[in-house]
Design a binder for these strands. Structure first.
Lengths: 122, 122
DNA sequence: CGATTGTTATATACATATTATAACAATCGG
DNA sequence: CCGATTGTTATAATATGTATATAACAATCG
């Protein structure tokens, strides 16, 4: 999986990393059971500090996306709590849709966007 | 408009404020042309610093939601750049839907969430 | 045994968030 | 015109979050 970091972004490096890995799972670039690189190797590859990678992995663990295993490293292990996931998504969508509403974005346009984005995930 | 701040939240106060105002516009609690309280008065009401409110207003101005006017204060003035707004929404939805995909949230469930949330905005 | 794993600890540097005062020019009501 | 209020700007202090640099630990695998 190719990982690119924008050091000029206002988004924290560990969050960019977390987002990239979530995208990788959603697009099936990586699958349940696959191992991610060790914190040290990935840090070296990208050219960042070990702790920054560790922080991204810790967030993903907290979110129930990976399982941290000694020796096997970080393993994709999806802990499916759908009610929790729907609640999280609802809270995040709420603000984004409200802003769109201020900009006259219609319900239909949001549906189209969702359709369009879901093409990536299969 | 009633504004409540959660001081234990990990979300910055100025962003909570920004979000609350966007929600207020989307739900028609406040309308185009209405004035928001002055930075000093709102800060006193909530019990926070003037500069924190100012920062929220500056963000809203940058996003084309309000216009800052001497004497009239912050006035709701929606600068509609739909292409820009759609692009912004697309970028934000991308990550959220990807995370949902990891949690087995289907396209249909997202559509339902959108329908449900849009009931608030009329 | 030796290398690699996540984990933990400490320290430093920097950016951001929040607060506290203070002062300025512009503007409106009386 | 006067005084109060407006956004704006400046400076400073504190707290928190981000990122880096070393270092060491126990566990695990070949």
């Amino acid at each position: 999986m190719f990982i690119e970091i924008d050091f000029n972004s206002d988004e924290a490096i560990y969050m960019q990393l977390r987002n990239r890995i979530i995208m990788g799972i959603a697009t099936s670039e990586i699958r349940e059971g696959d191992s991610l690189p060790s914190v040290r190797r990935l840090a070296d590859n990208i050219g960042i500090n070990m702790h920054t990678v560790n922080k991204a992995y810790t967030v993903l663990k907290q979110e129930g996306i990976i399982r941290l295993d000694k020796r096997r490293g970080a393993v994709i292990a999806l802990d499916i709590n759908k009610l929790q996931a729907l609640e999280d998504m609802r809270r995040e969508l709420r603000i984004i849709l409200a802003k769109g509403r201020c900009k006259n974005i219609t319900k239909e346009e949001v549906h189209e966007l969702v359709e369009e984005l879901f093409v990536e995930y299969r």
